[in-house]
Design a binder for these strands. Structure first.
Lengths: 150, 150
DNA sequence: CGGTTGGTGTCAGTTTTCTGACACGTCCAC
DNA sequence: GTGGACGTGTCAGAAAACTGACACCAACCG
């Protein structure tokens, strides 16, 4: 219906959003059978790579607010995938850790997610992939520079 | 606090999400003074480039559901930024168009958004930009291929 | 012609995420 | 030590998005 690509596709910003959306959709698709959402998975993956992360740190890593991450953590804790001490060892920070159960869940999810990433990079050469790496990092850096900076 | 980059940054998927998030934040920042959200802007921009788009088509273009786009369109219509015929010329499709008022609003927003995009691409050469273009399109294509396909 | 498929607008309810605000703890400068 | 800036966990309410479902229309094919 209508045309398909006029000149929306000329904007790298739009393309970035489109790619991110496609990635999210693809991840949701493979994660759904496992009963996990993308944020769900992100949280577990974060925890596996950096055990003891706080709620706020997890939120930043998953690009959601502390409040959102907190409700997720409560669910994960109730389901027995993560553990948080009842008392803060220092300050108010409650370091979160994966339980063996959470780790097992994550392993399955990681396989699924990795397959998506592999598919995403299918048509790209090694050189293009490292190019993409540098380019994306440059974009992020440039975007954040001006946020608070000037 | 904690470390800063362990090996999250090694995943292109994560980097893509990070870049997209940074872009969204930056856009929200410049759009907020204009009283517009990102979806808001996307809708207007879409309409400017392809007048007469239907609600469903706009939804797909802005990566939201028909239902979400519909409530947005109702707001835009109430504010006088877009027009939809009361009766469908053919079928049930209601072609939407920008009003002069909507067009003026969009112009201001476009300036703001373009500045963000320029900033984002600041550290990139022309060659890198076209590389990014190809790479992102390849990712989108590869991601969508497997969705329904095999 | 009748049936099926695909697309659309819309109603309703739910879920998720966000914004705003509070109290508390740490850290550093003074 | 004392003050302020900063970061954190949490409560409460609001906004945004989603899922599910319905009726309708167009196009195609037997």
């Amino acid at each position: 219906m209508s045309q398909d690509g006029v000149d929306l596709g000329k904007s790298l910003g739009y393309l970035l959003k489109e790619a991110s959306s496609a990635l999210r959709v693809a991840m949701e698709e493979v994660l759904r059978p496992l009963g996990m959402s993308v944020t769900h998975y992100s949280c577990l993956e974060l925890l596996a790579q950096r055990p003891g992360l706080s709620n706020s740190e997890l939120a930043r890593g998953a690009f959601v607010t502390r409040q959102s991450m907190n409700v997720l953590l409560q669910t994960l804790e109730r389901e027995g995938d993560v553990t948080r001490p009842a008392e803060a060892p220092v300050g108010k920070v409650l370091p979160t850790r994966l339980t063996p159960r959470g780790r097992r869940k994550l392993e399955k999810a990681t396989v699924a997610v990795r397959s998506v990433e592999v598919r995403m990079l299918g048509g790209l050469t090694e050189t293009e992939q490292s190019g993409a790496f540098r380019i994306l990092q440059s974009m992020i850096h440039s975007l954040r520079d001006g946020d608070d900076g000037a």
